[in-house]
Amino acid sequence: MSYVSSEPGITPVFRPNSAAYRWRLLASTIGWSLMALMFGLLAMTLVAIIAFVIIRGGANISWATFTQTTQSYHGLINAIEGSVLVTFGALLIAAPVGIVTGIFLSEYQYLKTARLFSFLCDVLIGVPSIVLGMFGYIAMVNYLGWQFSLLAGCITLAAMIVPYIARTSEMALLQVPGNIREAAYALGAGDRTVIFRVVLVSCVPQILNGVLYAAAISMGETAPLIYTAGWSNYSWNGHFFHEPVGYLTYVIWSFISEPSAAAHQLAYVAAFLTTLIALLINLFARSTLRRKNAPH
């Protein structure tokens, strides 16, 4: 048996030890190496950024970080407080709305409205966060007269993460096999019972993962908050309206362009804390989730 074609003009495709085949193998090896290099480039960037925030920020964390305000350039307590408040506020609004929306999108997917809304969710996810910030500024800060305030920030962030939670919940619910629903309907259960007692309970972890990712997103947001929550060097005084609040991401952006070394250190510490929290949430959500089903 010979691999060599006897017909003239036809190049044999596969002939071990031929020069042509060796060239192809070489080309393949180079190709794979380049691809590995590209992957390495991305992986190295992640390592570089993590190393950067740890070296610059992690080293400067002290007790004062968690006890003093940015007013003194020694601590970040007002920003940490603000970030937590804004994120929890946004989640408090967005999680119920988003999950129920997700239920609508998945359980009534046979309706045209549900498919349209699902598409609109993707559209809303694609809206740049600064546009949402501008919207919050016009609608709440100015039109409703709330001024830079905690609630304006929370609602703006909530508008940003609702479609995200809705889509992840939809994906989670869609993974529940249809025959479970059919079995429940066959027993005479109504929509409400089927959804809350049968379908929802079997995918709670995945839905909570979506909420966790959303928390990570809102924790790391800056642009919409600049336009709605403003900035404050002082701790939150309990007001939902008319009083700006601080948040960690603002410190990173603003304090790095101030002249003093103390301000720079605060920016690095804030970057360390935000990155740490965002990546830990991501890792935690991942570890409990086998299949990746988050939309972009």
Binding site: F39, L42, A43, T45, L46, V47, A48, I49, F52, V53, R56, A216, M219, G220, E221, T222, T249, I252, W253, I256, A267, Y268, A271, T274, T275, A278, L279, I281, N282, L283, R286
Partner: peptide, 24 residues
């Protein structure tokens, strides 16, 4: 693990990318 190395990059807040970009 390998894809984690790439996908975690998407979880880094954009202002941190900005800081890294500015300083490094």
């Amino acid at each position: 693990t390998a894809s984690l190395m790439v996908e975690l990059l998407a979880g880094v807040p954009s202002v941190v990318f900005g800081l890294w970009g500015l300083i490094v």
